[in-house]
């Protein structure tokens, strides 16, 4: 059943029933004295919503995965699908990053439209994002540079901002992303390290 999500900039999201066929996402305004309708998203058959590629406070990187069969798994189309409540939390993350910290973030792989991990011929394999039990819960992002923008590069790049990236993880945790990883170069304090993340960060919803 579709819900209205009221997204507070403090990190809470309040769901309530609506009579629509879509989930409505209301974002608290910058002054935190009201809400405005940010976007409406219709759940698909896998009960996921397509997170938009870009709005004026975030965007996406890389091409869109085509899906296909790989190692016995039918990967669905696309790479920007999330559970409805996770999408609400991610809107909140991006909005707080932009309005409070002047950080413009670019998101990468989430899940495919059927809930599988996103994949295209030739691409690397994900262990989460729909592989195993984590469907619609995981989000990749490009690391933030000193100017506050996501950039295409690794953690050892001279433009990599320790401060800005630590802010990303801190804000994400406020909104419920607590299964997070940085690369093994380990430039950030307090964030677990994991292989395969030197050129992008990983936000996982839930504990």
């Amino acid at each position: 059943m579709p819900l209205d999500y009221h997204i507070n900039r403090t990190g809470t999201v309040v769901p309530s029933h609506n009579n629509d066929k879509v989930n409505n996402y209301y974002l608290q305004n910058v002054n935190m004295d009201g809400y405005f309708l940010l976007i409406s998203l219709e759940p698909n058959q896998a009960l996921l919503v397509k997170f938009p590629d870009r709005m004026n406070f975030f965007d996406r990187y890389s091409g869109i995965d085509t899906g296909g069969m790989n190692n016995g798994v039918l990967h669905g189309k696309g790479d920007h699908y999330l559970l409805a409540n996770v999408a609400a939390a991610l809107f909140g993350v991006a909005a707080v990053l932009k309005d409070t910290h002047s950080i413009h973030i670019s998101f990468g792989d989430m899940s495919a439209d059927n809930g599988s991990d996103p994949w295209s011929p030739g691409s690397v394999d994900h262990a989460g994002h729909g592989h195993g039990s984590r469907s619609g819960l995981d989000v990749d992002f490009r690391y933030i540079d000193n100017g506050g923008y996501s950039f295409h590069g690794k953690m050892n790049n001279k433009n990599f901002s320790k401060k800005n990236n630590e802010i990303v993880y801190q804000v994400a945790e406020t909104f419920g992303f607590k299964k997070n990883y940085q690369g093994k170069m380990a430039k950030l304090s307090g964030i677990p390290t994991a292989g395969g993340h030197d050129d992008h960060g990983h936000l996982g919803f839930g504990s």
Partner: peptide, 30 residues
Amino acid sequence: MKVLSEVLLLSLTLFISGCNYSNGQITHPQ
């Protein structure tokens, strides 16, 4: 994020069961 409604919990529960039994589109290995 703090879950502030039983409605959301119900919704999540339905989704989780849907992962296993829904229309055959989700391909999680068992």
